[in-house]
Design a protein around this nucleic acid. Structure first.
Lengths: 194, 194
DNA sequence: TTTTGATTTAAACAAGTGATTAAAACAAAT
DNA sequence: ATTTGTTTTAATCACTTGTTTAAATCAAAA
């Protein structure tokens, strides 16, 4: 492989942290996954917390960086916004199934991320959506609008382990199920507007 | 207080485990919260894992015990089922906001719970729903039906820390927001049927 | 070749954490 | 009052885990 030691560690940290979360991850697991000596991890990143911070910020951007550019653009219609958001999210999450669970669970406990969310509050606060809804005569709040898109799109990934282990859906069918849903969600969301 | 030592420990374990999850919880935290000596915890429950098992099973039942009795009852119409489920869930979760996050996150790693989910597969597998949908001429799958109810109802609780720390909604407004949503979700779900 | 600085390793430290032990305190029964 | 079994405590063990240290290896420069 062509990766530097630093990159190998990051890569391994990405994998283990997103799978198990901060607390359940041991630095030794990361070192082993990266195929390097444990001390190297501290040589390059000083501490577990430090390394984690890099990953959680990266993943936070991955999960929420999508939203604002789309929602805040007045040139894009409501319908297109939903469609684009759902498509982008679905594609992203199919490649990174642990992402929403990981980010949302660490937001609860990570002081730094909480601050960062406060700063990027505009990420989700959407006067543009508010006015687009009003123009079309819809009285639904933009918060409900955003909540519904995210609920219908993210929740299936967060609950996948439940439904797979219950046998209600098989691992191999999941991607197909999600891909079908992707087509329906925009209509469903439009139907929530009144 | 009127609680026995055993109950005090369970109570404390409930609180700390559901807040922080298995890994991030230290037995000393539970002991302190319960106001008892650390050794007592092991005297009564042998191990952290043992105590945890009691809590996770209890919480699992709390979260999923609701579903089957309602969905599998042929006497209850689709509309009533959605309405009842959403109402019950909303009330339950308003009192226990960490519940869905806790249960879903531990399902990923708890071998015993995974087995238990397999056993209670009928919990979610719903031939009754399937036939009720068919009778009404709807072609939507029962899986999508269940997924949509749960997405719209559970996700807001799972993402609450995000939206609160982003400032999009205030802690005090949340219960109100959820209570309003509760009225709308049944209509929204019915509109997903086709 | 020697030197110098960066990289890597093996070993161990220090604190944290789940669990145990042995003795003390307590309560109920005799 | 004494005995007996239960409950509680203080102390400590054994192991895990994040981190450090000091030495070894390597690569590039002089």
């Amino acid at each position: 492989m062509e990766l530097t030691t630093e990159e190998k560690i990051i890569e391994a940290a990405r994998k283990i942290f997103t799978q198990k979360g901060f607390s359940a991850t041991r630095t030794r697991d990361i070192a082993e996954e990266a195929g390097i000596n444990l001390a190297l991890l501290n040589y390059y990143f000083r501490s577990k917390q430090n390394l984690f911070q890099i990953i959680i910020e990266e993943k936070f951007d991955e999960l929420f960086g999508i939203i604002n550019p789309i929602l805040s653009n007045r040139e894009i219609s409501l319908e297109e916004k939903i469609e684009t958001l759902v498509t982008n999210y679905t594609n992203l999450l199919l490649e990174n199934e642990d992402l929403p669970f990981f980010v949302l669970s660490e937001i609860k406990s990570n002081e730094f991320i909480i601050k960062r969310v406060k700063q990027n509050a505009e990420i989700l606060s959407q006067p543009v959506i508010e006015s687009q809804l009003k123009e079309r005569g819809f009285t639904t709040s933009s918060f409900n609008f955003i909540m519904n898109i995210m609920s219908l799109t993210l929740f299936p990934f967060m609950s996948k382990p439940l439904f797979v282990s219950s046998g209600l859906i098989k691992e191999e069918e999941f991607a197909r199920f999600i891909t079908e849903r992707k087509k329906d969600i925009p209509t469903w969301v439009m139907n929530t507007l009144k």
